[in-house]
Design a binder for these strands. Structure first.
Lengths: 227, 227
DNA sequence: ATAATAGTGTCTTTTAGACAATATCAC
DNA sequence: GTGATATTGTCTAAAAGACACTATTAT
């Protein structure tokens, strides 16, 4: 058999960040049918001559104004059940992005609005298409990857303190970690953090050392998720 | 923009098994252009009304005679660079399968032949399309998943001994593990193995207890990859 | 001074890894 | 018996987790 029925191919983005101690996801108000005015993950059709990751980067910038630069982007999974899009047979390649704390998103492209929403609220409400499932998969992937990679630093500004890094873990995992053991763990993992030699003071308390992300991306042994 | 350019969507399968102490992959000889008579991963076009995983299961059975029943199947990643298929813009959703030791594969469908090949040989030779990259990604995923899941049991027959399970780890990771520490580790992980109460004797030596896979799928803490 | 946060040190429990010793088979 | 494999036990070193204690700031 040599038939190749035509499919539409889209990319959808699960863009996560930490705001006010909680994990948030970037959602748009759909500016067109189907699911007009529903909340949805940003995304859109892949163009004939671009790679999938280029399409993801472009849609992120077009629809939400979030630049790819400070953001970690990786492929999540692909969703292609017949009927997931009422218009036509559509296969969507989902990407997962970890963003630092950014200014408010702006809408653009096909989106009538773009905003950060706590993932708990997003999963409780209705999302367009099968985006609730995609979001749930993305959150689960994020939680798992914090254990054995240095990706938590992707949620931080280029320079950050150990407390800020710990706040990322606590927000994503929804636990409280012992500040002393956490500090010892991350500072004793070779190559995970690069000391800038500077400190910052934020409110009362001893000023914290300022670090950048180091070259190490894999955590051996992993951080554990216990409270 | 509301245009949705047509894409062809395929599934490709990285089917892994352990034979003679080495990790093997199931490859087909392509029966048609392009890459006629090249070795390739089994796969083919997704039909208009089937899910992606159904397409993967169908192609596996059609092209190689491998039934889905005893096989673990999970989505690996999606490959869609322009130009990866010289015929048209094609997006391929790759699936990763872990098979127990099976009889020789048979060819069928679009495949002129199907055979198990050691992954080292497969990666050293030329594979059609970008299948070398897909295979490399699949092998890496398999190696990583053995660490923190019970998926090694998917490479075993329904009933197996601790030695047979250890042989899977040694073949996939290419290391030698201490039989005593491995035995203690897997038998002390709650729910990983279900004792059948029976033993089997294979050659000289004390007969080994026979187990089935237990309900536990996540390994906490993970097995380590050291020799 | 007091409260708050940053960071270090110490102790206990758990686990990994090395390896001795025992059990049960084929021959 | 010998040799092979299975299984249990013991020991040591490393790591996790609990938590006392010190350091440095804002107020």
């Amino acid at each position: 058999m040599t038939s190749h029925p035509p499919f539409a191919v889209t990319v959808d983005l699960v863009v996560l960040t930490v705001r006010a101690g909680a994990l948030h996801v970037l959602l748009v108000d759909r500016g067109e049918e189907p699911f007009l005015h529903s909340r949805a993950l940003p995304g859109g059709f892949v163009r004939p001559d671009e790679t999938l990751v280029d399409a993801a980067t472009r849609e992120l910038a077009e629809e939400t104004g979030v630049a790819a630069g400070p953001t970690h982007l990786e492929q999540l999974a692909t969703y292609g059940d017949p009927g997931r899009d009422p218009r036509m047979r559509t296969v969507s390649v989902a990407y997962l992005a970890f963003a630092p704390h950014l200014p408010e998103a702006r809408a653009g492209g096909d989106a009538a609005g773009a905003a950060w929403l706590p993932v708990d609220e997003a999963l409780a409400g209705d999302l367009a298409f099968d985006h609730a499932r995609i979001l749930a998969d993305g959150v689960e992937r994020a939680r798992a990857k914090l254990e054995y990679t240095s990706l938590a630093t992707a949620f931080c500004a280029p320079e950050f303190t150990v407390s800020q890094l710990r706040a990322v873990y606590e927000a994503v995992w929804g636990v409280t970690l012992d500040p002393r053991n956490f500090h010892r763990k991350v500072t004793s993992t070779p190559g995970l953090l690069a000391d800038t030699g500077r400190t910052v003071s934020d409110g009362p308390g001893r000023p914290a050392a300022v670090y950048r992300a180091g070259p190490t991306t894999a955590l051996h042994p992993p951080l554990t998720r216990e409270g």
